[in-house]
């Protein structure tokens, strides 16, 4: 994306390294430092890992010896993890089963609802939307009781559906998409009506294309949150065979300490790639949902 922030400070033009740049660099370093520690640790062979990180791995007490580079880089841990840890694959697959159908559902259910809130005038719209916002703001644990009662009634506890179904009707994506549909240009919509388009056609021909960044944003944020989830699986999945990666990962340390860091890296890869790919859209989407005249 091009530089598009017109705010430039002209007084500090000649200074070699301004205070601002320095602060930005420190902040960026604070982000990268833990990530680099993680990458380095994932590339260490087992004996080096045990020498450096006995204490954090919970094996024995010894001072940690941090390093941003492995002394003898090796892919041992990744090979062990990807070729000889069937449990890891099961959990990875579980995460996929739980996340993707949910996102698809959010897309089909949420998009028309968001369009309605943003563009159609109907009685009670404002109050209904406030209800959605309230449901969005409430932490999971508060709605957990209600959810649990329904899932229990429907006999869905301890199954993938117990995570997928309530997730589809999460109100967060509706909120994000509504904001971005509101930013769609009015003139375009009026032109579509003048040409005789009905509400449904207007939704598909004007709504989807103009709200596209918002839809992508909602899906990306939804993916990140669902991929990272802990609360729901702890509450609803008793059977370890059904656990998603996010819940299994802390346990892997006890099983195979040597692959713990590599497992973390593998878990990070999908959301990081998704973000780097969708970065432009994400920013547009957040821009349209954040800026209002």
């Amino acid at each position: 994306m091009k530089e598009f922030y017109p705010y430039k400070n002209k007084q500090r033009k000649n200074r070699f390294l301004s205070v601002g740049t320095f602060i930005l660099m420190v902040s960026a370093f604070l982000v990268w430092f833990p990530l680099l520690l993680m990458v380095a640790a994932s590339l260490m062979p087992e004996d080096e890992l045990l020498w450096r990180y006995l204490s954090p791995l919970g094996i024995a007490k010894a001072p940690v010896r941090i390093s941003l580079l492995p002394s003898y880089p090796s892919c041992e841990a990744f090979i062990e993890l990807l070729l000889r840890s069937p449990g890891f694959f099961v959990m990875f697959w579980n995460s996929c089963i739980q996340v993707f159908p949910m996102l698809l559902g959010q897309l089909f259910v949420g998009t028309p609802a968001a369009w309605t809130f943003a563009r159609l005038d109907f009685p009670g719209r404002q109050w209904l939307f406030r209800l959605y916002v309230l449901l969005m703001v409430l932490p999971f644990q508060v709605t957990q009781v209600s959810n649990y009662l329904v899932l229990d009634q429907m006999n869905l506890l301890n199954s993938h559906l117990s995570l997928i179904l309530p997730g589809i009707w999460s109100t967060f994506p509706v909120f994000i998409m509504t904001r971005s549909f509101e930013a769609a240009p009015k003139a375009l919509l009026e032109a579509a009506y003048l040409d005789g388009a009905g509400e449904v056609r207007a939704f598909f021909l004007v709504g989807i294309p103009t709200g596209y960044p918002g839809i992508v944003t909602a899906l990306v944020l939804g993916f990140i949150d669902a991929w990272n989830t802990l609360e729901q699986p702890i509450a609803y999945l008793k059977d370890m065979q059904l656990w998603p990666l996010s819940l299994y990962l802390p346990d892997i340390v006890q099983d195979k300490a040597a692959v713990a860091f590599a497992a973390g890296i593998v878990m990070m890869i999908p959301p990081v790639l998704l973000y780097l790919n969708g970065e432009g859209k994400l920013e547009q989407g957040i821009a349209s949902s954040g800026v209002k005249e």
């Binding site: 982000v31 833990p34 990530l35 520690l37 993680m38 640790a41 990180y53 204490s55 954090p56 791995l57 007490k61 010894a62 001072p63 940690v64 941090i66 990140i224 991929w227 990272n228 802990l230 990666l245 996010s246 819940l247 990962l249 802390p250 340390v253 713990a260 860091f261 497992a263 973390g264 890296i265 878990m267 990070m268 959301p271 990081v272 998704l274 973000y275």
Partner: peptide, 22 residues
């Protein structure tokens, strides 16, 4: 970037930084 890093993945680094021998 931290937005997209799962908590479960990064928590070991937090332990490296914050544990008693950390």
């Amino acid at each position: 970037l931290p937005i997209v890093i799962p908590a479960a993945a990064i928590i070991l680094v937090w332990k490296i930084l914050f544990c008693t021998d950390g």
